[in-house]
């Protein structure tokens, strides 16, 4: 749905090129809009927040800002893994309503920055993907590899996190 509105209803964007930061998560490639990325850090221990969904690993001190860290593997119910020296935290700026939230996501490793033509972003199929298409911007094929482009604003929306929390 989202992909439709974003890709088709906005003719100006048609031939535009957008940059995506791609990263690895459980042997799969994912991408996020690079303009959303604030910084990339190595994994460090976080402070656990009590009584929060398990995919919220805790909070981190980012130069005086208290930033929650989301484990995407757990968020997408993928197989859990041990954090190691390659584990990274991608710090993202999430827009929600009129405010901006800073959040981090844990990824196995960052891969590359890709220039992707907006035209080449394909609509995500409604089934067969490991994650809910609601959170996806679309799919992109890069050297025969499928990259799932995430819609960060929807995925890390605080309301969304709360509703998942209530489900649990």
């Amino acid at each position: 749905m989202t992909t439709d509105t974003q890709a088709n209803n906005n003719p100006i964007k048609q031939n535009q090129i957008e940059q995506f930061l791609t990263f690895q998560l459980a042997e799969e490639a994912y991408g996020v809009d690079i303009l959303k990325v604030q910084e990339i850090r190595g994994w460090e221990t976080v402070r656990v927040i009590p009584n929060t969904p398990s995919f919220i690993k805790g909070v981190l001190n980012l130069r005086g800002l208290v930033v929650p860290i989301v484990d995407l593997r757990e968020r997408f119910s993928l197989e859990k893994s041990q954090y190691n020296h390659k584990t990274v935290v991608i710090v993202l700026c999430v827009k929600h309503l009129d405010s901006t939230f800073v959040m981090g996501i844990v990824a196995d490793a960052v891969s590359d920055v890709l220039d992707i033509k907006v035209d080449d972003i394909k609509k995500a199929p409604n089934f067969g993907t490991k994650i809910d298409t609601r959170y996806m911007r679309g799919m992109y094929v890069h050297h025969k590899n499928m990259i799932m482009l995430l819609d960060v604003d929807r995925l890390l929306n605080p309301d969304e996190i709360e509703s998942i929390d209530n489900l649990e």
């Binding site: 221990t45 976080v46 402070r47 927040i49 009590p50 009584n51 929060t52 919220i56 805790g58 909070v59 981190l60 001190n61 005086g64 800002l65 208290v66 930033v67 929650p68 939230f101 800073v102 959040m103 605080p158 996190i161 709360e162």
Partner: peptide
């Protein structure tokens, strides 16, 4: 430091702070 600024309110917690060693 406000937890709500980047996350949301947590029951039983009024906020966060940063300790001398940089941890939260």
């Amino acid at each position: 430091k406000s937890l709500e600024a980047n996350y949301r309110r947590v029951d039983g917690v009024s906020g966060a702070t940063i300790l001398g060693d940089g941890s939260v």
